[in-house]
């Protein structure tokens, strides 16, 4: 793939900001749901659905599509918004998040929306399933036709099942698989290194037989080049440690683990009182939009 032009990068940045705005509106309407993780993954999801992923929103189950597996199920709101923007379903449906009868449930429900590829929510079960997808592609001789992507979190590195899958992927040299860990340093009860330390994460995966890369999960150019490069690695599964800021884009949410599982309006009040959180969150994103547009001129 050619390196993306400056205008393409700007376009993606604008898109990511629009997606963040819709994410926040959706969470406010829902009154329940996760803020920090999804905001932090907005840039990665934007790059996937608007540049890197081989997919067709009009034909979601196209056999040659890349498989994007969301291990960390509670971050699915950002995927819903990216998918709606990409044309998988009407944007107004975003307002049904977590409501009865909705296709877009609190955690991904494959049966109601097969384009999600799997059902998830309980942590640490995604990488094993991604290994299964990758093995099936190889058995079918289609492993060069499409790629398997799996997005996981740092919190779920604590689950034993993740490491069982890590061993497995190395044994079978699943080079058609790229695993991305959202390294945002938070989980529910605190910072990962306080709750159950993960470092040195890179060395652990290398010792398990993986090819490990790192990227700034908010730098569009770097996200694109790292994802693309990961596909060209032979003989080993690839891990990309994506360094991200939880809550990215909204200062009073950024880097605060108290924002893991609540929407604006129900979050910690250390900086902004509850009743002002929704308004302030949208204001901050509007300001960001203005800045991106100004830079673009």
């Amino acid at each position: 793939m050619p390196t993306p032009s400056d205008s393409k990068i700007k376009e993606l940045e604008k898109k990511a900001n629009n997606i963040r705005e819709d994410l926040v509106k959706m969470l406010i309407e829902s009154g329940s749901g996760h803020s920090a993780g999804p905001l932090g993954q907005a840039d990665i999801f934007t790059v996937f659905y608007f540049h890197v992923l081989k997919h067709d929103p009009q034909n979601p189950m196209w056999p040659e599509r890349d498989r994007l597996i969301l291990d960390v199920g509670h971050c699915v709101p950002i995927r819903y918004v990216a998918m709606a923007h990409a044309g998988y379903f009407p944007k107004k449906e975003l307002m049904t998040l977590r409501k009865i009868g909705s296709r877009i449930e609190g955690h991904p429900n494959y049966l109601r929306m097969p384009a999600l590829e799997t059902t998830s929510g309980p942590l640490g079960e995604g990488l094993s399933q991604a290994c299964g997808f990758a093995m099936a592609a190889r058995m079918d001789g289609t492993d060069l036709d499409y790629h398997i992507w799996c997005i996981g979190s740092d919190g779920e590195q604590q689950e034993g099942m993740t490491w069982e899958a890590a061993m497995f992927a190395a044994k079978y040299r699943l080079s058609n698989l790229t695993y991305i860990i959202d390294r945002n340093n938070i989980q529910i009860d605190g910072y990962t290194e306080d709750i159950m330390p993960l470092e040195p994460l890179r060395e652990k995966y290398e010792a398990f037989g993986w090819h490990v890369m790192e990227m700034n999960g908010h730098d569009m150019r770097e996200i694109i080049s790292t994802l693309e490069e990961s596909k060209s690695i032979q003989e080993k599964p690839v891990l990309i440690i994506a360094n991200t800021t939880p809550g990215k884009g909204i200062e009073f949410i950024e880097n605060r683990f108290g924002w893991h599982g609540v929407p604006p309006g129900a979050g910690p009040e250390d900086v902004v009182p509850k009743e002002e959180q929704a308004k302030r969150a949208l204001e901050e994103l509007r300001t960001l939009r203005g800045r991106i547009e100004a830079e673009h001129d």
Binding site: L123, G124, E156, E159, Q187, I188, D189, I195, M196
Partner: peptide, 25 residues
Amino acid sequence: DTAGSSRAKYFAEKFPARFIQCGVQ
């Protein structure tokens, strides 16, 4: 990793030496 929402925190605050945080395990 759910000491807050499953309310283990009440004990943890009073008796930190007898509280064990396992993480998501």
